[in-house]
Amino acid sequence: MADEKWSVGRSVNAAKGIPGTTTDCSAWESDVPAEKWSVGRSVNAAKGIPGTTTDCSTWDHKPSARIVVRTTYSPDTPKEVVAKHAFVLIEKLKTLAPDLGLEYDDERSVEPPDQRRVTFAISPTRRVPDLRTRLVGLLLKVCDEPNVPISGLMVEWDDEPTRTAA
């Protein structure tokens, strides 16, 4: 998703603060004499370790490029098989490029009623440099996937009419 579509700001606590009370507990457990009680501030049991900060500005971006896979099935192929093939490809791509955060792209996938020619898109959810080059490289690595009846495989992007296919 493009940067200008995000609102940026400090969210607001949904809980409304209510003034609390204080209770004098000095009379509680009075069966133990007062002089037997130790009084003091307890100490944090946890030992602190310096933390890290993470810049999340590249998270949850929907980059303008994606991998589009076309598959051809016989009309009686069960839906589960088609879904499984999408899953197989996504898992393979995820393993090859974990930094891209690849996910099935519901909006850009097409499932025709006859199930014969299915087009599904796999989109990165992270913004990385040289995205198109990375996707083309991935394309070449999955185009011989033996379990999936691939009939078309391409990298598609929004801002140019040209496409790269393998």
Partner: peptide
């Protein structure tokens, strides 16, 4: 807490600084 509201004027998608 467990629930937060967007600040006035903000909308989704939203980034917490």
């Amino acid at each position: 807490g467990t629930h937060r509201f967007l600040p006035p004027g903000a909308d989704f998608p939203f980034r917490e600084p």
